[in-house]
């Protein structure tokens, strides 16, 4: 199956991105040299992954490695955009266990490696739209969430899936302040969770996830605002009732459960009609935001009959 000399879409990249990548590989090399003395931990443990091309990739040019790994919202490591890059470097994600519970036949504690091992890792280049009206194009690596969830045999009462991030203020310094109601919680309907676009993500740019991007595993739901993409997941629960997600708990009039990208429904404090593409530079114009972030063809049917203005 695996073709050794296959060129991935994101490998055709601009020179500046190339230089960034080279600088990164150089520092990774140094880290590898250090690893002969100590086992690599934190971001020094980021490694190349074996991947196969996945479906649904956009042919838009991905953002640089630097953009993707230094401009992040991950409040567990601080509320500034560069805080996660700064403060997550030494976060240790090995060992990592995920608890599966709720309405399913095979609940239990699963090691990260056991969760991922049976699946092929797919490259998927997705548009990423933040609720703050900026966007990127990111070459994720992951497995369809549905394929993973089916292994736990959810029963007919499993209408929703609830996800939880690690809560450990010693390792996640942002949790020492009650900016949000920790631990971070997100949720999907079972149909959304099973949709082939929904990706349980373990890597980016062909490598395992850097900590600031939600290592070791996070969700990517490309037709929803970025905050639905919960990071550093430690718990997955199948539920009968709609779970309350953290942003909805903290500001219910501003953030709903669905959080589908929708240029026609503004955030109460700012417009969602246009977005600023990260990496486009100081003089670039904003671009129009697409319904469902451009994935309407794939997902619009999930919401037929639903009032998207009320269910924002």
């Amino acid at each position: 199956m695996k073709q050794p000399n296959r060129i991935k879409s994101w490998e055709i990249t601009s020179e500046s991105n190339f230089i960034n990548r080279r600088a990164f590989l150089a520092s990774a090399g140094l880290a590898a040299a250090g690893a002969t003395l100590l086992p690599a931990t934190g971001n020094a443990a980021v490694r190349e992954l074996e991947t196969v091309p996945g479906p649904y990739s956009t042919d838009e040019e991905p953002n640089s490695w630097e953009d993707v790994t230094t401009y992040n919202n991950f409040y567990e490591f601080g509320t500034g955009k560069e805080d996660p890059y700064r403060y997550a470097q030494d976060f240790v994600t090995e060992p990592w266990t995920v608890r599966i519970e709720g309405e399913c036949e095979k609940p239990g504690d699963y090691a990260f490696e056991d969760l991922v091992a049976p699946h092929a890792l797919e490259d998927r280049v997705y548009r990423h739209r933040c609720v703050e009206a900026w966007s990127m194009v990111v070459p994720w690596v992951g497995i369809p969430l549905g394929d993973l969830l089916k292994r736990f045999e959810p029963n007919s009462d499993a209408k929703y899936v609830r996800f939880e991030t690690l809560y450990d203020p010693r390792r996640m310094p942002g949790q020492r302040r009650a900016v949000l109601d920790w631990p971070y919680v997100e949720g999907l309907t079972i149909e959304e969770a099973m949709h082939p676009l929904t990706l349980m993500t373990v890597g980016v740019y062909g490598k395992s996830l850097p900590n600031q991007n939600g290592a070791p595993l996070r969700l990517v739901i490309p037709w929803k605002y970025g905050f639905k993409g919960i990071k550093s997941i430690v718990k997955i629960e199948f539920t009968k009732r709609q779970p309350r997600n953290s942003w909805n708990v903290s500001a219910p009039h501003e953030y709903g459960f669905y959080a589908n990208v929708n240029p026609e429904v503004d955030h109460p404090r700012w417009s969602q009609a246009r977005e600023r593409r990260i990496g486009a530079g100081l003089f670039a114009e904003k671009q129009p935001t697409l319904m469902f972030n451009g994935y309407a063809e794939e997902v619009a049917s999930l919401y037929s009959g639903l009032d998207l203005r009320k269910n924002y």
């Binding site: 401009y71 560069e82 600023r276 990260i278």
Partner: peptide, 18 residues
């Protein structure tokens, strides 16, 4: 930072930063 002198930069979102 805007002109990228000596490796300085406005970061990934220069408009917002300015």
């Amino acid at each position: 930072e805007a002109f990228g002198v000596a490796g300085m930069s406005l970061g990934a979102n220069p408009v917002e930063e300015l």
